[in-house]
Design a protein around this nucleic acid. Sequence first.
DNA 1: CCCTATTCTGGCACTGGATGCCACAGAAAG
DNA 2: CTTTCTGTGGCATCCAGTGCCAGAATAGGG
Lengths: 237, 237
Amino acid sequence: MARERSGGRVATREVVLASVRLFTENGFDATTMDGIAAATGVSRRSLFRRFGSKEDILFAEHDELFSTVVRYLEASPDDPLSSVFAAARLVLQGYLGDPEITVPRYRLVRAHPRLRDREVAMTARYQAAFSRFLADREGGDGGGERSLAAGVAAASLISAHNHVLRSWLRSPEQDRREVWASFDAAMEFVRRAAEPMLRAEEGAARERVLVAVYPGGIGRDELIRRVTAAVEGAGGA
Amino acid sequence: MARERSGGRVATREVVLASVRLFTENGFDATTMDGIAAATGVSRRSLFRRFGSKEDILFAEHDELFSTVVRYLEASPDDPLSSVFAAARLVLQGYLGDPEITVPRYRLVRAHPRLRDREVAMTARYQAAFSRFLADREGGDGGGERSLAAGVAAASLISAHNHVLRSWLRSPEQDRREVWASFDAAMEFVRRAAEPMLRAEEGAARERVLVAVYPGGIGRDELIRRVTAAVEGAGGA
DNA sequence: CCCTATTCTGGCACTGGATGCCACAGAAAG
DNA sequence: CTTTCTGTGGCATCCAGTGCCAGAATAGGG
């Protein structure tokens, strides 16, 4: 079913939509790159060049969304926590706004462990980006405590976001306002947990105990070096 | 370098160690299954049968650890939160106790995106297991709020665990006591955030606000139906 | 001890994802 | 029009992964 050869390059979105249809109808494994090439009019070789792999076709739109979110985050003027909340909102919006791809993809992902891993890797990319953003933007020293708090806050945020997202993906016909209400509730839930976490580092001097165990023979400088390393490693509590 | 044919089945661990060595020396992609077969004396076909894939050889030990942790979790009599902390301790112990595999694997994972995704998928499995465990064991109704709290708590725990784990993997020569001190500190950090989260559902009736937006024309029953659906969806805040 | 059923293993052939190489078409630049 | 650059398709090749089958090893029953 070679498409009209008249025009130039076939749009990415067209290829993705056709591929999603083929995957859904024939199964992911049973769909070959030759089949996609035949269905879209793009040569097998060009498919690999443009998308990288068969899986990447399915997640091409998602990669774009990720870039958008990261760019948005870098340009965000708000306080760090509000910025990542807004970024998460953008991600959910990306899913809700493109159900033609995201919903059947979710069904495929649920059925295929390999695709599920790929999806998980995507959310991990968000988590890493959010974590780094929070660690960079939040004040405090450069110690490990900050990156611990940032990492945990980002993980919480992603988890809450995915909780709402999955709920919608399972029944995409539900009212959007309910979805957004759930999202707001989830973000509020995370904010209550994450805000004191990130604030904690500012008053980090109080209410902390350092426990050091070390051989009796070592010198003073060596002891200090070790303690410094340990504290920088993860921040004692 | 075919191994002595005298004995029976070559142990899994031997195959993994040999493979890790080959991956490290020649690169993951440059190492073929034929190469591993030649180096271990196990036929190419049996390698696929026993491990599933080339990547799975690298993570075989990790899969075992995962099963151990899950079994431990199921048999754990402690309160749920302490149980998952203990389980996380078990995971870290699994890494620290097998540096011959875990350390070079970390180097490979860092260098190769595909392996990184695989590693991320492993941690996601832990996160899902912990989340389900918390959701099942913690009291409260069966609503979405509980699974939200459980998911966020599990995500926080995994993130904190990985924070400590990565710190050790980057410099595995550091004192183990420092690692465990960091771990304890990180767990304490998570406990402070997660405990109120999970408790919150018990006194869930207080301090909550319901915001409903709806068209003016709908009837009373329809309004109640929608509100009920929204609250069940993710628990308003 | 022998014969049988089950399981594990290895060899073989084959599919299909993925990559390198090269030739060619179209657009942009001179 | 010529040159250059970029994107494309065809071709050959590599190698992970799978189905099939035959043979070895192991267990079990008489």
